[in-house]
């Protein structure tokens, strides 16, 4: 992540005006974030008060129209789908990133990076549609109902793969040329160089890429809504449907009233906290590695 250093450049009056514009823009973004969180809290308050925090975890099942508000299966659903996606995308993305950086010739690497950037730019609704029309029916023919934890993790993995590939690629690319030359002088092979020399240096940055992918995956809505089946139960296998917190909100918000609606905001608040948790973990990791460096 970025670190701020006191800017040593002198400030002219033009700089000052520019400063003011930048400050205003920065405060507006911070203000918006604050307002969003505040809004979530206000909307969640009625449910928080009359249902009670514990019941969101202890109620059996999510049946808001029958006064049962168990968010547990959805919290677990969000975690499982995200963990599955990382488990699939991280090794593949890591291997691909190393391949691009250390094995592909320059022109090939450039083309590959362009392709990854393109994949990263595919709107999630398109990936969701791809999953719904190709993946889910095939899974359904094999292990019904098809829309499942596995389907969600697979499509999310495709979505976050470019992030992991490109960050691994960049992390290995940032290894100092001196080390490369020294490794070459010692007659190390590319694989030994990657594993013994570059990996220890590149590891923290690679980790950051995975955290970015994690934050994106856990907040993703459209893909999981389309391919996960959305049944708010704890899945018994990867072929069972799951519902995530995001899908829960997207599915029910427009049709929810009073406590039901407010309970959805409690889920939303939980989601913001989860993402904040991921970012804080990433920040701690970053700081620790900075101290080691």
């Amino acid at each position: 992540m970025t670190s701020s250093v006191r800017n040593p450049l002198p400030r002219s009056s033009r700089d000052r005006r520019f400063d003011a514009v930048l400050t205003a823009a920065a405060s507006v973004s911070a203000l918006v974030l604050g307002l969003v969180v505040l809004f979530l809290m206000i909307e969640a308050l009625p449910a928080w008060r009359s249902i009670g925090a514990m019941r969101f975890l202890t109620d059996e099942g999510w049946h808001p129209t029958e006064d049962r508000f168990g968010l547990g299966p959805m919290i677990l659903g969000s975690l499982l789908v995200t963990a599955g996606a990382i488990a699939i995308a991280a090794p593949i993305g890591w291997a691909a990133g190393v391949f691009v950086q250390l094995y592909l010739p320059v022109r090939g690497a450039r083309a590959y990076r362009q392709a990854m950037a393109l994949l990263a730019g595919v709107p999630s609704v398109v990936l969701g549609l791809f999953g719904l029309l190709t993946l889910v029916p095939r899974l359904a023919a094999w292990q019904p109902p098809g829309a499942s934890w596995l389907a969600g993790s697979l499509v999310l993995a495709i979505m976050i793969l470019p992030t992991i590939v490109l960050s691994t690629d960049a992390a290995f690319g940032a290894v100092s040329p001196d080390l490369r030359r020294a490794a070459a002088a010692l007659g190390l092979g590319r694989w030994t160089f990657a594993r013994r020399v570059a990996w220890p240096v590149a590891r923290p940055a690679t980790g950051m890429g995975i955290f970015q992918a994690l934050a994106r995956a856990i907040g993703e809505t459209m893909v999981v809504l389309m391919v996960c089946g959305n049944v708010p139960k704890v899945p018994a296998s990867v072929f069972d449907p799951v519902r995530t917190l995001t899908a829960n909100i997207a599915l029910e918000m427009g049709y929810a009233t009073r406590l039901h609606r407010s309970a959805l905001f409690v889920g939303g608040l939980g989601l913001v906290l989860a993402i904040a948790g991921v970012l804080i973990a990433a920040w701690l990791l970053d700081r620790r590695s900075a101290e080691h460096a």
Binding site: H63, E66, L132, L133, A140, P145, L225, G229, V231
Partner: peptide
Amino acid sequence: ASAELHADIIIGHNAQAIQTVGGNPHA
């Protein structure tokens, strides 16, 4: 009761339900 209604897949819009059933011979 609403809680007793069985589900293998839960969807939102009509279009999504039609898409799902159209893509699954046993739905």
